[in-house]
Simulated scan of single mutants.
Amino acid sequence: MTSQPPEPTGRPAPSPELRASDADREAVVERLRDAAAEGRIDFDELDARLEQALTSKTYAELAELTADLPKPDVPTSRPPLVLRGGMYGASLGPGRWEVPGRVIAHGGVGGVKVDFTRVECRLAEVTVEAYGETSGVTIVIPDGWAADTSGMDPGVGGLKDRTTPDRLPGTPLIRLTGSGGMSGVVIRHPNRRERRKLHDNPARDLP
């Protein structure tokens, strides 16, 4: 069977005989874990393929491990989504909204809240560029999603990261950048009141 090497998004496929990097191996590992979560391969086979992925030397060896799996959808590139708090504040979600690869939130005077709890996101990563400014920015992510806040400047208002590091297969990583400004930035999972509202409204979008 002739297999093609992995096709990174936006780049031409590398030659099969080229040496793979740690990042290439990790990408295949994530794809295999997603396939297991979808029921495409069982966990015994997952363990065997993961071991092979971590010891693969070339793109061709990695390609063999995913040759019988559907190719991942490549999301259409979308412009950044920009939210500005203005005088009265701004909020997005909870509810179904299309997530771009980059969200920019300016707290302004009224503050901004970005709630991802009911979105369907097939991106591997979403960059949220948050600027707390006068009234701050709050970001809410579902349980099972994780955040990387290492690129965030806490500013005067600070950064409060109340998320857990336990990331489920197939979920995006929220990469938080920007500055806390005067009032800071908070990223967290739903609080008790939000969880109750989600529980009471399981089958429809919330306002």
Score class of each variant (00 low, 15 high):
residue 77 S to K: 11
residue 86 G to S: 08
residue 143 D to S: 08
residue 86 G to R: 09
residue 52 Q to V: 12
residue 133 E to Q: 11
residue 166 D to Y: 12
residue 87 M to N: 07
residue 110 G to P: 03
residue 74 V to E: 13
residue 55 T to N: 14
residue 168 L to S: 13
residue 60 A to D: 11
residue 109 V to G: 07
residue 175 R to W: 12
residue 158 G to H: 06
residue 133 E to S: 14
residue 85 G to L: 05
residue 77 S to A: 08
residue 60 A to R: 05
residue 97 W to N: 09
residue 44 D to F: 13
residue 174 I to W: 10
residue 74 V to I: 13
residue 166 D to E: 15
residue 103 V to K: 03
residue 166 D to M: 15
residue 126 V to C: 13
residue 50 L to W: 00
residue 65 L to E: 01
residue 47 D to P: 01
residue 82 V to Y: 05
residue 121 C to Y: 00
residue 148 D to N: 15
residue 165 P to A: 14
residue 166 D to A: 15
residue 126 V to N: 04
residue 62 L to D: 00
residue 133 E to C: 04
residue 102 R to M: 11
residue 172 P to E: 04
residue 133 E to K: 06
residue 49 R to F: 04
residue 180 G to P: 11
residue 51 E to T: 12
residue 116 F to M: 02
residue 155 G to K: 12
residue 90 A to L: 07
residue 160 K to W: 10
residue 79 P to F: 05
residue 124 A to S: 09
residue 109 V to M: 13
residue 161 D to E: 15
residue 148 D to S: 10
residue 94 P to W: 11
residue 59 Y to D: 10
residue 112 V to I: 02
residue 148 D to I: 02
residue 108 G to Q: 06
residue 66 T to R: 00
residue 143 D to T: 07
residue 95 G to L: 07
residue 90 A to E: 12
residue 171 T to Q: 14
residue 67 A to V: 00
residue 143 D to H: 10
residue 133 E to T: 09
residue 114 V to F: 12
residue 44 D to S: 10
residue 163 T to V: 07
residue 129 E to K: 03
residue 157 G to P: 10
residue 85 G to P: 06
residue 131 Y to T: 02
residue 60 A to V: 02
residue 61 E to D: 06
residue 120 E to V: 14
residue 84 R to W: 08
residue 62 L to Q: 00
residue 121 C to I: 04
residue 119 V to T: 15
residue 53 A to W: 08
residue 76 T to Y: 09
residue 168 L to R: 12
residue 48 A to R: 06
residue 173 L to C: 09
residue 72 P to Y: 11
residue 49 R to A: 02
residue 175 R to F: 12
residue 89 G to R: 02
residue 88 Y to L: 10
residue 136 G to K: 03
residue 46 L to G: 05
residue 117 T to F: 13
residue 56 S to R: 00
residue 151 G to P: 01
residue 175 R to H: 13
residue 102 R to V: 12
residue 123 L to S: 00
residue 135 S to H: 12
residue 78 R to Q: 13
residue 97 W to C: 08
residue 139 I to M: 02
residue 89 G to P: 07
residue 61 E to G: 00
residue 76 T to H: 09
residue 172 P to R: 04
residue 171 T to R: 15
residue 125 E to V: 02
residue 89 G to A: 03
residue 127 T to A: 11
residue 168 L to N: 06
residue 108 G to D: 04
residue 97 W to V: 10
residue 146 A to H: 08
residue 70 P to A: 01
residue 180 G to T: 06
residue 100 P to Q: 01
residue 141 I to M: 09
residue 90 A to R: 07
residue 149 T to I: 01
residue 108 G to R: 00
residue 112 V to W: 04
residue 59 Y to N: 07
